[in-house]
């Protein structure tokens, strides 16, 4: 297994310098994500205004995969509508799903054109035990979006 496909520079950058850690400017919807097996933790707050996620605050601790996924997700969802986020989440989960041969719609000729930095996580699929780590933030997001209704 190619470790350098897993530990891409952009992943390590988000792991070491996680984005959107500042608290929300106004009270929003909250969800906690937790992987009891490995102890990864995510605490997510979002502000949804007129169906659009206008602010994101995400903190956590855990491995490079769970934390970089959380950080990249926080950037990807800011300013997006629920519908856009649902599509993004679908594509991300498809990218992580070992059973759906990559119908996340990624364009191999234009890396990053569909999911941006998040595409760097596609190597995780080759490490099945780590898929849960990558998905944790997204599952937490779905819960927070439910809260925000």
């Amino acid at each position: 297994m190619a470790l350098d496909e897993l530990y891409r520079e952009v992943i390590l950058d988000h792991y070491r310098n996680p984005r959107n850690r500042q608290p929300l400017g106004a009270p929003g919807a909250h969800a906690d994500g937790h992987n009891p097996l490995c102890g990864d933790e995510i605490s997510l707050d979002i502000l949804v205004v007129d169906d659009t996620v206008t602010e994101v605050s995400i903190v956590g601790r855990g491995c490079s995969i769970s934390q970089s996924s959380a950080s990249m997700m926080s950037e990807a969802i800011k300013g997006k509508t629920r519908a856009e986020i649902a599509e993004l989440t679908g594509r991300f989960k498809a990218m992580m799903d070992i059973d759906t041969e990559g119908d996340a719609g990624l364009d191999p000729d234009r890396p990053g054109s569909v999911l941006g930095d998040l595409e760097a996580l596609q190597g995780v699929r080759k490490f099945p035990v780590r898929i849960k780590c990558a998905n944790l933030a997204w599952t937490t997001l779905e819960e927070a979006l439910g809260e925000a209704k």
Binding site: L3, C63, I65
Partner: peptide, 19 residues
């Protein structure tokens, strides 16, 4: 992170526990 250590070691056939 220990889980990253375990993944890297696993790619060399080494089983350690992380967590």
């Amino acid at each position: 992170h220990p889980h990253d250590i375990a993944t890297i070691l696993d790619s060399r056939g080494i089983s350690v526990r992380a967590g």
